[in-house]
């Protein structure tokens, strides 16, 4: 990094805001996607599981976006940030906005992100910003539980019937290309790392890959080839799916501004 000594020593308010929004958006958008399963999952237990994981993610998002609004100092609340920003303002990882497709795809998406959040929150506990370190310690415990669920399903489906194997392998083949963004430089998380706010995204790769490969092997799934990535959600470049997701999620606030429950 060519950052000056001053930026290394103290993260600017603007950077802390953008980093918290990036992390919060990733949790928020995934929570919304998982929420779409409520009432539709293949079994009641899985319906509850996906809704519970969505709740944990929503809790993370609320904490991060509230914190972001607070340090921004313009009076924006978690709700303003969630419901009144346009798709191009969101900096979530592109993987989390991908559609549910089927239970197999949903589990693959969850597994890939859980394995990433495990490493992220582990490292984020050492953040120079106590509010982020605090959240990381809390979220890490929940993420371990999510990971146990999603990695367990990867193995059950992958090493299950011909049909279940095919569906998770399809999911893996279509979603793998979104994982390179997790570790790519050139976005807010790299700036945050230089300022001691969070881990260097590239540094999370080795542990993530080792975890993922071990589960894929046990699940008798084939790891897709890496592609030179095209998606860059954390640099505000999204697939068309995010607009559709937000149209639904933001409908009430956009239609009835300021409406309260």
């Amino acid at each position: 990094m060519s950052a000056s000594a001053a930026t290394v020593l103290s993260a600017s308010t603007d950077l802390r805001f953008r980093y918290a929004v990036h992390l919060g958006d990733t949790s928020l958008i995934l929570a919304q996607r998982l929420g779409e399963w409520v009432g539709h999952a293949p079994a009641l237990e899985e319906d509850l599981a996906l809704a519970n994981i969505a709740l944990d993610l929503l809790g993370q998002a609320r904490y991060l976006l509230s914190y972001a609004g607070e340090i921004e100092g313009k009076g924006r609340t978690e709700d303003d940030l969630a419901f009144l920003r346009d798709p191009s303002d969101f900096t979530n990882l592109a993987l989390v906005e991908q559609p549910n497709v089927d239970f197999g795809h949903t589990i693959v998406r969850q597994f890939l992100i859980d394995a990433w959040q495990l490493e992220l929150f582990e490292c984020l506990q050492g953040s120079s910003e106590p509010r982020l370190a605090e959240l990381a310690a809390k979220a890490l415990k929940e993420t371990r539980y999510h990971y146990r669920f999603s990695s367990g399903w990867m193995v059950r489906l992958g090493d299950g019937t011909e049909e279940s194997h095919k569906r998770v392998q399809d999911g893996l083949d279509s979603l793998w290309k979104f994982t390179s963004e997790f570790f790519a430089p050139g976005a807010v998380d790299e700036e945050a790392a230089a300022a001691g706010l969070g881990p260097d995204p590239a540094s999370l790769r080795a542990a993530w890959a080792a975890n993922v490969e071990q589960v894929l092997t046990e699940a008798t799934l084939k790891k897709p080839a890496d592609v030179s990535y095209r998606w860059f959600g954390k640099r505000n470049q999204h697939s068309e799916h995010l607009s559709h997701l937000l149209a639904e999620m933001q409908f009430m606030q956009r239609t009835y501004p300021g409406v309260q429950w």
């Binding site: 237990e45 899985e46 509850l48 599981a49 809704a51 944990d56 146990r148």
Partner: peptide
């Protein structure tokens, strides 16, 4: 164990 998750986040089935 029937499920890792139940009616509230703090319980399993």
């Amino acid at each position: 164990k029937v499920s890792e998750f139940a009616s509230t986040p703090c319980k399993a089935l």
